[in-house]
């Protein structure tokens, strides 16, 4: 995988939820994603940024344009140094509801993207990487 462009955005306020997802939407549109794919990756960005802010007490979102095997994609990395997720399997299954979500944040996000990786360690933090790929020939 080749990283063509990378942009690190801080997550240190609630306003960054809108800021990060706007950036992601602009990149996905520039890469020729259709409206459904743009909505999917932008919504994933919104969920994961809020997650890092609310549960991880802030961190960084890295928005990247990547290329692999001739196709272009958007890769997003989220780092936080929060408390970590104690019961990851349960959270990924969904239905782990908190005041600020419907409990579908992570499990729902996973279904919106093509690649999803998560590492979380209690007391250390959480690192999530997701990617969504444009269809072949999408970019003009």
């Amino acid at each position: 995988m080749i990283v063509l462009e990378t942009c690190a955005l801080p997550i240190d306020s609630e306003d960054d939820v809108v800021r990060v997802r706007t950036r992601v939407r602009d990149l996905a549109q520039r890469l020729g994603f259709d409206a459904f794919a743009v909505a999917a990756i932008s919504t994933a960005a919104s969920e994961l940024t809020r997650n890092a802010w609310v549960h991880g007490h802030g961190g960084t979102a890295t928005v990247e344009e990547v290329e692999e095997g001739g196709r272009h994609g958007v890769r997003l990395q989220f780092h936080d140094a929060g408390p970590g997720i104690a019961d990851l399997p349960r959270v990924l299954k969904g239905g782990f509801s908190t005041r600020r979500s419907l409990g579908l944040g992570l499990s729902g996000t996973r279904r919106l993207v093509d690649d999803f990786e998560i590492e979380s360690q209690c007391g250390v933090g959480t690192h999530i990487v997701v990617a969504k790929w444009a269809r072949f020939g999408a970019r003009t």
């Binding site: 919504t43 579908l104 279904r111």
Partner: peptide
């Protein structure tokens, strides 16, 4: 509701 929003919400689950 836009089609892509409906599709996203259903993909995520019954939200």
């Amino acid at each position: 509701m836009r089609p892509e929003v409906a599709a996203t919400l259903i993909t995520m689950g019954q939200v």
